[in-house]
């Protein structure tokens, strides 16, 4: 008898606790001041993506008054490990991913389930890519490079930051479109590509705009890869691919960045995040930072961003397939 009473009491207390928890959860609104919003940057601390993540986190704190926002760098697996950490996190809106073109590459090359298992919050901006040579190179224009490479197939080396990095995909995409006239060489990130081009070990490189800007005395940009012009004064005279005489070459023109979260996150959390990021994006400090670094605004929100991403994926599909890097359904 005593056992039955004890069991009933324990069961009642347990049910009571579950109800109490449920009531508490119902009342809790996003964000809970006891919790921390973590923005995972899948690239190393110190790079362009990391710097932008930290700028955004600071702007978010300023506009929302919510101070528990931190940045975590989870690197490796060509950004796949950081992306997977967000995919596997609890779908409560407290784990965000600094999404980028690199995640699209990672999804198609099979390193992560990537965009298929993420919810889209906001698109942010585009960092332009450009082709550059060392300042005393014999090549003065993109036309010089391509004409020389056509005459001597396989002799001109075209460097990029890694086979599965976005600049790698762009390099292979260019080469496929130009009947493999280049010797495409992948380096271990910009930190090895920049000295290799400046030091004359590699003829031509594909860089992000900020990398060239930081080394403008030693690198000469010869063309932007997309259709967009730079807002950086130093690069105002650099032609786009079309202006350089190659309107038919279509490759991703830069690295797009945005914020995603774990799939299945409640709508109200996503709405709060999207609104806060929009306000942060529009602050004078963040906009000033974008301008200083020459990044182009491409703000989109929730469904709009989803649609934008679909278009981006469609542009990249044929390139990844042609390069042979695509895996699974993207290879067919």
């Amino acid at each position: 008898m005593r056992k039955i009473i004890t069991c009933t009491l324990v069961a009642l207390i347990a049910i009571g606790m579950i109800f109490a928890q449920g009531l508490k959860e119902e009342k809790a609104s996003f964000p809970d001041p006891e919790k921390t919003i973590k923005i995972i940057c899948p690239q190393g601390a110190g790079g362009g993506t990391d710097t932008q993540t930290r700028q955004l986190a600071e702007a978010m704190k300023a506009v929302s008054g919510f101070d528990n926002i931190i940045v975590e760098n989870i690197t490796g697996g060509s950004t796949g490990i950081g992306t997977n950490a967000v995919i596997d996190a609890e779908a409560d809106g407290y784990t965000l991913l600094m999404y980028g073109t690199y995640v699209i590459c990672g999804t198609m090359t099979g390193n992560t389930d990537g965009f298929e298992k993420l919810d889209f919050i906001t698109g942010l901006d585009l960092e332009l890519f450009l082709i550059a040579v060392k300042s005393d190179s014999r090549f003065k224009s993109l036309d010089d490079v391509i004409k020389h490479a056509k005459k001597n197939p396989g002799k001109v080396t075209l460097g990029n930051a890694g086979a599965t990095a976005t600049t790698g995909v762009v390099a292979y995409g260019l080469n496929v479109a130009l009947d493999s006239i280049f010797n495409v060489v992948s380096f271990n990130g910009g930190k090895e590509l920049i000295p290799a081009v400046i030091g004359g070990h590699c003829d031509v490189g594909i860089f992000s705009q900020s990398e060239v800007k930081a080394n403008i005395d030693q690198l000469t940009p010869i063309a932007f890869l997309g259709d967009d012009h730079s807002i950086v004064p130093e690069f105002s005279n650099v032609p786009t691919l079309a202006e350089a005489g190659y309107p038919d070459l279509k490759v991703p023109g830069g690295c797009f960045r945005g914020i995603c979260t774990t799939q299945g996150t409640p709508k109200e959390a996503k709405a709060w995040l999207a609104d806060t990021i929009e306000k942060a994006f529009n602050t004078e400090s963040f906009q000033g930072w974008l301008r200083t670094n020459g990044l182009l605004s491409q703000f989109t929100k929730l469904d709009e961003f989803d649609k934008f991403n679909d278009d981006l994926v469609e542009t990249m599909k044929p390139i990844l397939k042609a390069t042979g890097l695509a895996k699974g359904k993207y290879a067919n």
């Binding site: 190393g44 601390a45 110190g46 990391d50 710097t51 930190k191 000295p195 080394n215």
Partner: peptide, 15 residues
């Protein structure tokens, strides 16, 4: 050069 010599200086450049 703006090129990190090791991973610690990469973080420094970012800072």
């Amino acid at each position: 050069l703006g090129i990190p010599g090791d991973s610690a200086t990469a973080v420094l450049i970012g800072a």
